[in-house]
């Protein structure tokens, strides 16, 4: 008796390799923002990127969790938006790669706010990138 071995279609394997985008994961609330963008909408307020679930509940936000490396997260929906990374000193190990990833998406502005610096009475706000200084003060 002869058995037939079924091979996967070639075009499926090729398309899987062609889009590394598909292997990236949405951080919590990321899909919600991407759904807005797909419908031609943008959030009315700046987007908060934070590692703490207790921060930024009144803003559109995404949460960076420990379970997925920053380089495996999808951020494309932040393109052209005002983005603020709100972090603590203990997040410093991911901060550089998080900022690099978000900058590669080309936000309108990117700033960082260190919660620990506030407690220590040090400057907490840092403007990292602004496409236009006037746009950066517009929300």
């Amino acid at each position: 008796m002869q058995t037939q071995i079924k091979k996967p279609p070639l075009e499926r394997a090729a398309s899987k390799n062609a889009h590394p985008n598909l292997t990236r994961k949405y951080p919590p609330y990321g899909k919600k923002l991407d759904d807005l963008r797909r419908r031609g909408l943008v959030p009315a307020m700046r987007v908060i990127v934070t590692t703490d679930w207790k921060i930024g509940g009144a803003f559109p936000r995404i949460i960076i969790t420990d379970d997925t490396p920053v380089t495996c997260l999808q951020f494309n929906y932040l393109n052209g938006l005002h983005v603020e990374v709100v972090h603590y000193d203990h997040d410093n190990h991911i901060l550089e790669s998080l900022i690099t990833e978000i900058l590669s998406i080309q936000p309108a502005t990117l700033s960082a706010f260190n919660m620990d610096a506030v407690k220590q009475d040090k400057p907490a706000f840092k403007l990292i990138f602004s496409k236009s200084v006037m746009e950066g003060t517009n929300d």
């Binding site: 590394p20 959030p43 929906y77 080309q106």
Partner: peptide
Amino acid sequence: MIDPYAAIEATPEQQSAYAEQSTKPYKIRF
């Protein structure tokens, strides 16, 4: 209470940049 996800219409520039960004494959960093 204000809806944090209240949205406004994207500008044509924002929309075209998003469309371009969404089709662009990410650089893979090791």
